[in-house]
Structure formats: C-alpha cells, structure tokens
C-alpha cells in the first residue's frame, strides 16, 4: 500500500504548498469551520478547544531571530512534519479527534483520518473542511483499511490517535517495527478532558524545526557592520 492511494499522485507537491502557506493562513482558513462544525455531544467543548489550538498555532508562525556573531543572520522557524494519521479507538470523542485533526492541519501536515470511532461525524468534518478550502490532497478520510495497515504507510511521519493509555504500547510497537524514519506517536489519552491537547507543548509534536543561517556579508551585510564602527555611542 502507498500513501498515494489516499493522498494522490502529486502528494509531495500538495504537501509542500500547504506547508509553505504558513500557520497564519492555515489558522485563518480553519477558523472558518468553527461556525459549521458538525454537531456532536461535545460541541461546546470543541468550540473551546479548537480556537485555543488555533491561537497557539498562530503563535508558531513567527520566525525567531537568534543572537550570534555579527555578519550573519540566524533564524529558527517551524514547519509541518509530514503525513499524519489521526484516528480514534473505541473510547475516542469528537472533541479529541477534532483537536488532533486541527492540530495536524494547522501545523502544515497532510492528514489521513481513520478509525472506527465517530465515523459519520468524521466524514462530515472532512466534507466541511474541504468546503472551506482545505485541499482534498491534504485531508483524506480513509476507507475501511485497518489501522495496523495504515500505520505501515511508507511516508507516514506521525500518528495522532485518540485512545486509551493501555493501547499505546501496542501502537508504539507497531511503529517501531517499521523501517525508515522514526514515526512520532502523539496521542491524546484523555478523550473527555483532552488534557494533552490543552498542554502548551502538544502542538510542537506536530512540527519540525528549521534553522536558516545566512552569511550576510556575502550580500552587502558588511556595510552595516562598518557603520557600527562609526557609531557615536
């Protein structure tokens, strides 16, 4: 089985475009879904959780300038990790699933939404998100492919289940047996209160960091430095 089966043949380019759109664009886009979220028992909780996640994701848009020697610039910014598998096991709630989906999407990742839990609601969520502009190649609802098989997709970068704590060792084991990159397991095990999703570190599990160092003296930056030598302080 390949990722293309779910995401399409031009998946790499679609992911790249989505990822390069930036957190601000994605958060704005996703925020448009808030008014139309498919109804569920925990609708009110969803309306508390998702804006909070999007607010946090918005803060991740900034490029951090790092101090360092003169004549070069050093910046750190965040980028999506890659294909994310989001699913819920029996105990999953809509709010936790929505939290994982919005987290993954806001951080620039393509999402494959699957699992046995809340299937109809998930289907309506996917339809809604497509309607508001999330590209089809970025968010896909799986067919009835078993989770175990989905976890073996070759380009998978992270798995974000909503499950119980006791289920985690098994997921972890399946992921560890894969070849290739180390797939991140980013679970929410508190489907009702979403205590992990609410924590400030959670969104960082969906991103990877990029550092950009530029020797600015190669493109005229030494002029600024020379001026510093003439500063009158």
């Amino acid at each position: 089985m390949t990722d293309h089966l779910f995401f399409g043949a031009d998946h790499a380019a679609v992911f790249e475009n989505w990822n390069r759109r930036g957190f601000a664009y994605r958060c704005k886009l996703l925020r448009a879904a808030l008014d139309q979220l498919p109804l569920a028992g925990d609708h009110e909780e969803q309306l508390r959780l998702i804006p909070l996640l999007l607010d946090r994701a918005l803060h991740m848009d900034r490029v951090v300038s790092l101090p360092g020697p003169t004549g070069e610039s050093n910046e750190l910014y965040l980028s999506g990790r890659g294909d994310a598998l989001v699913f819920g096991t029996e105990s999953a709630s809509c709010v936790a699933l929505a939290g994982q989906v919005f987290s993954a999407l806001a951080c620039g990742n393509p999402v494959l939404l699957g699992g046995a839990a809340e299937q109809e609601w998930c289907s309506r969520l996917v339809t809604l998100l497509h309607q508001i502009g999330v590209p089809r190649g970025i968010l896909t609802l799986t067919d009835d492919t078993p989770i175990e098989a989905l976890m073996q997709l070759p380009h998978l970068a992270l798995v974000a289940p909503v499950c119980q704590g006791r289920e985690l060792p098994s997921f972890q084991r399946q992921l560890a047996e894969r070849q290739g990159l180390l797939v991140q397991l980013v679970p929410e095990t508190d489907a009702v209160r979403c205590t992990t999703l609410l924590q400030p570190d959670h969104l960082h599990r969906f991103v990877t960091e990029k550092t950009r160092t530029i020797n600015t003296t190669a493109v005229g930056g030494n002029a600024t430095l020379l001026e510093l030598g003439s500063s009158a302080a």
Binding site: L66, G68, L181, E209, K210, T211, R212, T213, N215
Partner: peptide, 27 residues
C-alpha cells in the same frame, strides 16, 4: 533541519544555530 547560505555548513553553535534534522535524520 539546518540550511547555511554562502558559508560552510558545519559547526552549529549552541543557541545560535539549533541543530537537528528531519526525516531519517532525526526526531
């Protein structure tokens, strides 16, 4: 993870060029 423009690409400095990769290069 780390791109260096118009210079060498080794010798990341702590707190200046946070170091680490993605994909097969690290978590």
């Amino acid at each position: 993870g780390n791109t260096y423009i118009n210079r060498n690409q080794i010798g990341a400095v702590v707190g200046v060029q946070p170091f680490g990769g993605q994909g097969l290069s690290g978590t």
